[in-house]
Design a protein around this nucleic acid. Sequence first.
DNA 1: TACGCAATATTGTATGACAAAATAGTATGC
DNA 2: GCATACTATTTTGTCATACAATATTGCGTA
Lengths: 217, 217
Amino acid sequence: MEMQSQGYTEDECYRKLRTAIVDGTLMPAQRLVEMDLARWLGASRATVRTVLARLEQEGLVERERYRGARVRHVSHEEAVEILEVRMALECIIARYAAERATDDEIDKIEELLGWMREKFEEGDLVSYSEGNARLHRTIAEMSRHSTARRLLDTLNSQNVRYQYRTILAPGRSHPSLLEHTAIVQAIAGRDADAAEQAMRKHLSHVCDTLRKMRSGP
Amino acid sequence: MEMQSQGYTEDECYRKLRTAIVDGTLMPAQRLVEMDLARWLGASRATVRTVLARLEQEGLVERERYRGARVRHVSHEEAVEILEVRMALECIIARYAAERATDDEIDKIEELLGWMREKFEEGDLVSYSEGNARLHRTIAEMSRHSTARRLLDTLNSQNVRYQYRTILAPGRSHPSLLEHTAIVQAIAGRDADAAEQAMRKHLSHVCDTLRKMRSGP
DNA sequence: TACGCAATATTGTATGACAAAATAGTATGC
DNA sequence: GCATACTATTTTGTCATACAATATTGCGTA
């Protein structure tokens, strides 16, 4: 009787596979063969199956009976849908962030915004884009609205590939910076209505940009 | 060698367990022991585990390592959060429903509204409440916005227990009927803005009602 | 009664089995 | 040469069983 080679836990496998999908290591429509994943993750087929089930529920994976799982492809139309829903949710969290932010948190996002402005002025749009993502994440935390936050998280993971593009669209970064400034100012001023409006305006512009990019992947 | 008693499929188990949670057969905080479920569902433990993983991802079940799964308890605060998000999503679908509805579909919701009015006048608030749920579901279908629809579905399943109460709140059914009439009229008139406004108004009232009921379960 | 320890129950994970279905590969007929 | 039918292989869906890790329970003792 030999040792049962204890592999990774379900949760570790979940995170690893999820990351691989979100960061593009695994491409959309790519087949996810259970035994291959099991070997790669160092886990059993059973564990892999439950992980795939979770990821399906989350919308990152598609499973067809007897035909296995594959990375879900997000169409351009769906990316727009997702962004519309995001807009609605981000309005909620912007409102709550304005109401519930602590002084420390406000310092933090103002600092972050300053950093983003620097990067923008340096022409480093990739870093700027990262700051953008971090800003939205931070505001979500500040809102303390766990339901909206959770949904936003899953939605964001579904269309990361579309995120960069909108910011890199020609002439889109400067308005983007102004819009983010307005959002931060509204939150700093604890003006819930203004925060929601600023966020809505920002995301409706992102939405327009995305809609115009019919040449999507 | 005897026949391997082929039980129910994962999906059947998923639906059965989900229904049991949503309709209250299984109470919140109730422990879900894997072997018990396996026997009840006529499936193996492995199948039950993947089903539980899916339901956890969906927010209907909570799992704690080495302590098993239990039906998730939705606090009053969370019910309000969920309703807020629902409001945002229902505004989206109301807008799209107004834009995309076919004549047949409009006939259908007008008919449904008539039925609800009857039930209301008969004082049959339980049937009225069912009609209410059906109306919202139908509008969601009409919107053809699969992302918003999917999220709404999961959210609704999480707080069904709170749904009835708001309608049965004293003096709440008559305004509810008027609000629903306004929504249907806006959609029938293909007025997206009006539909969104009517829906927002309706749900903000439901939200207020729920907020006032601090005596929730 | 409170505490500590042993007995029990339950979960987390792995393995191996096998039927069902899909897919790939091969032979056959034209 | 190509379409078609049949067979082999792969992969999935499900089950049973095993066992370590942990949680829970129950009991005996101070």
